[in-house]
């Protein structure tokens, strides 16, 4: 009986902690969203910080990541194309590539990459700032850490995911045309390609695509920051904070992806 009681208490505590964490994340997300959208946030100082964040999280990685994404896309396009040709279903290869690669894999892959590169770094940074009381110190000398430290990172991360996804999508569409239509001109024509684009990319699909990418970008920075902010002030909690932040971020990304899929296909 005691064991059961102890177990139930454990489960209840775990659930309540889990719920608390999500409530914290959503509360911070709301604050960040309002902060991002209010023009008062952007004075000269914050504008410079935001510009630097965009530079570090988007501009710096744009060429390298786009080359990688293009190679990856080309590989997938060729695999799908060759397999489809083997089974005589070449005209369906185009649709498959656009639906799977352009609409799903590339945005998710970009979000995961930015999460690994920027999200993990932000989580560690914010956790250390919290542990070393830097945020309180800033507050005390009259600098709002939300406006000068946290919001610029959210803006930078979101812009980064949006820009990288946009460039990758254009590159993947161009590579699809190259690999499926230009390299095999006797199978499909420009007309087939355009018609398929028209069939797959309708207005709701495009809206869901950009909404999803925006949500990815937002989650990639908001969840690590919120997790970093809730780190207990002990140094050994820093890695635990990063671990939790990354796991939560992964599940959030998957949740957003599943919701987007449900919106388009259900």
């Amino acid at each position: 009986m005691n064991a059961l009681h102890a177990w139930l208490t454990l489960v209840g505590q775990g659930f309540s902690e889990w719920l608390d964490a999500w409530v914290r994340v959503s509360r911070f997300a709301m604050t960040a969203l309002i902060g991002m959208l209010s023009p008062a946030t952007y004075n000269k100082a914050t504008r410079l910080v935001v510009q630097k964040q965009i530079y570090f999280t988007a501009w710096q990685i744009l060429p390298g990541f786009c080359v990688f994404a293009a190679l990856f896309s080309y590989l997938i396009i060729e695999i799908v194309g060759i397999t489809a040709r083997k089974y005589g279903l070449y005209e369906y290869a185009l649709e498959l590539i656009v639906r799977i690669l352009v609409l799903e894999i590339l945005p998710l892959m970009t979000a995961l990459f930015v999460a690994l590169r920027t999200g993990a770094a932000i989580n560690t940074e914010v956790a250390l700032m919290k542990i070393q009381n830097e945020l309180d110190a800033l507050q005390r000398i009259g600098i709002d850490p939300m406006r000068l430290e946290l919001l610029p990172r959210v803006v930078g991360g979101t812009i980064s995911v949006l820009a990288l996804t946009a460039v990758n999508i254009v590159a993947a569409l161009w590579l699809t045309h190259l690999a499926i239509v230009d390299f095999h001109p006797w199978t499909l024509t420009d007309g087939d390609f355009t018609r398929m684009i028209g069939k797959v990319l309708d207005i709701p699909v495009l809206l869901v695509l950009w909404a999803k990418t925006l949500a990815f970008g937002f989650a990639v920075t908001v969840i690590p920051i919120s997790e970093g902010l809730s780190t207990p002030q002990k140094l050994f909690h820093a890695p635990i904070s990063v671990l939790r932040g990354m796991v939560r971020l992964f599940f959030s990304l998957m949740l957003i992806e599943a919701a987007a899929l449900a919106m388009v296909y259900v």
């Binding site: 965009i54 988007a58 501009w59 744009l62 812009i159 949006l162 820009a163 946009a166 460039v167 999508i169 254009v170 684009i197 028209g198 990319l201 309708d202 207005i203 495009l206 950009w210």
Partner: peptide, 16 residues
């Protein structure tokens, strides 16, 4: 970077 996003989004919409 900031121009790239709307240009691509609008371009994709127009192409669609």
């Amino acid at each position: 970077v900031l121009t790239l996003i709307p240009v691509i989004a609008v371009g994709l919409l127009l192409y669609a």
